[in-house]
Write a protein that binds this DNA or RNA. Structure first.
Lengths: 339, 339
DNA sequence: CTTTTCTACTTAAACACTTAAGTAGAGTCG
DNA sequence: CGACTCTACTTAAGTGTTTAAGTAGAAAAG
């Protein structure tokens, strides 16, 4: 067990006090360039790394941020979103020597508790809030406890927490516009968890677009994003009296599940039914027919969120920023509406 | 900004010293049951949580473990394995009030550096080592630095690090046996990253099984687990002179990609070609035909690994244990070999 | 030449725990 | 009854950093 070098070791070797070493190492004024270089050189030579415990105790940042994911395991496994999002977050964090604490919890209350605990234990400098649901109290909780947080979603009025979001409404509109341009007049939407804020935003945008175009019908069915519920919803839609000629899905798993249901009911895609997936991944590419999807740069999204977090904890910047809207990638699952 | 309660606060209210409070809170002897209960009650009442920083500084555990994933983002996004594995790990860790530090790095060196840093910064009690490659030096690195680690894979000779692994060889054998029973004599294998230890174990088992059955041909092609390379490998195999009648893949993404290639080459599945996926997920279920796969309880695997880690750091237990081998789930992509 | 200001430090307290060592008082034993 | 052992504590040192406050010496200002 090797003894960890401390700033005291550096101080001894440099012939200065630990205070001076601390200032030098943290890039603060109060040391001459010559001394600073000497200290930096010694630190590098003996492989010094700060003890975050000591730092944290002394009231400084712990250089760690938390991410809590409130979804059941089986859903997570199939959703490419989170893993890509995490990759993006990580790319920025690790470049800035900041750790990511991850917790997967089953529900909202557990998520709240996890944040409280992490903060009480001084484990994190801030938290990334994803999957905002409609009446989500987390922004208020963070504000109340004074926890720096970045909202992955629309900014909350009255709270100056930074937010990073993508314009879901515009994305949904572009999909509807596209389908209408192909001649579809009966378009359905299979939505994700109805409690999530962005699901509600998308559904509202869908209704608005449908009204604007004067569509014949525009039913919406909510699901939990799983293959099972996607299948059920699709079956219900395709066996209804005036069945839609196009269906949009809130993720890729359900859109692919729809392909199976169409096959089962002998409804050909895209001749009799057009299908659009709300997330893009290899899953859409690998199908027959390949699935038209709304492609987003999720890794980049994660990176932006992480950067917002770092800005927030380093200088308190709380800007709301929008990431580019997804672009529709037309593939073989969409075509002109049957007349 | 609320003032955090400390053990000093508890001590004052209980009328004892901080030392006594510490003993009581940590379940150590030296306090009477009455005093202990009183202290516990006060702690709960004022919402005390330990400062891991102070704990860590004083030399105790930090109640956090690290997991480093060395894979590029685009691969991770599509692989259901890691997210499920993490869910499993998390379920055990969070039940034991232990945090998970996650880092996604591009290569081996970065992984080593990340471990060193975390350890030097006293951020973790131990580390989970996944994706062991053939000449992996990480077990030795951990032993050398005295870092508690659990190996997700075969135990290393000479090092007493606990290991949790699944018998890949037996799984591969069962697949070959199954295909041979269906009459296949030309079976190919599309492997994952050749540098990974379990890929080598599987390939060796595949060769052994092929020899045992006296197969006509048993080619192996290595890939990086992506859809692209799976497609290429499949195309190469299916356009060769004595093309295989069955192909096994090291994950599900590539097996599904194979379906596309077979379609493209007008080779019907399963009549002319049987396909087996090495991992099971909704992806396999959603296809036409649905894909026969080797199903494993990945969430359970993660849970076992996490438990081994907790055992290791709490009482130094270093047992090697095996998780159940995957079971073959026959679906529509496999059938009797064409004669 | 004295006073002031600045630079480049040093000193020491604070952070919230853990734990080895010490101790007072009660009970046990011969 | 004195010596010993327990129990249930207390005391205080130690952990590695940050940072406010202090200081010595040099340079600048008057």
């Amino acid at each position: 067990m090797v003894k960890r070098p401390t700033i005291a070791d550096i101080a001894t070797r440099a012939g200065v006090s630990t205070g001076a070493v601390s200032y030098a190492l943290n890039g603060r004024p109060g040391v001459s360039p010559a001394t600073r270089d000497k200290i930096l050189a010694i630190a590098a030579e003996i492989g010094w790394r700060p003890s975050i415990a000591a730092r944290s105790l002394a009231g400084a940042r712990v250089h760690a941020v938390g991410l809590i994911i409130a979804r059941p395991a089986r859903v997570l496994g199939m959703e490419p979103f989170f893993m890509q999002f995490i990759s993006g977050v990580e790319s920025v964090l690790s470049a800035n020597r900041t750790a990511l604490l991850l917790q997967v919890v089953p529900d909202h209350d557990a998520a709240d508790e996890a944040v409280r605990f992490w903060w009480a234990e001084r484990r994190i400098d801030g938290v990334l809030v994803t999957d905002l649901w409609a009446k989500d109290q987390r922004p208020e909780l963070l504000a109340e406890l004074g926890i720096p947080g970045v909202i992955v979603g629309r900014p909350r009025d009255g709270l100056d927490l930074p937010a990073v979001w993508s314009d879901d409404a515009a994305a949904v509109e572009s999909v509807v516009d596209y389908l209408v341009a192909l001649g579809h007049r009966r378009i359905a939407r299979v939505a994700g968890l109805p409690s999530l804020e962005h699901t509600q935003v998308r559904t509202a945008a869908f209704h608005a677009a449908a009204e604007r175009h004067g569509l014949e019908s525009a039913p919406v069915i909510s699901t939990d994003y799983t293959w099972e519920e996607g299948t059920q919803a699709t079956r219900k839609l395709l066996t209804s009296i005036d069945r839609p000629t196009a269906i949009t899905y809130d993720n890729d798993v359900m859109a692919v599940a729809a392909l199976s249901v169409a096959h089962e009911l002998a409804i050909s895609v895209p001749e009799q039914l057009s299908i659009v997936a709300g997330d893009d991944s290899q899953l859409c590419l690998v199908q027959h027919p390949s699935v038209t999807a709304l492609a987003r740069d999720i890794v980049g999204y994660g990176a932006r969120v992480a950067q917002a977090m770092l800005d927030l904890v380093s200088d308190g910047t709380t800007t709301a920023q929008q990431v580019p809207t997804g672009t529709l990638v037309p593939r073989a699952s969409t075509a002109a509406a049957p007349h």
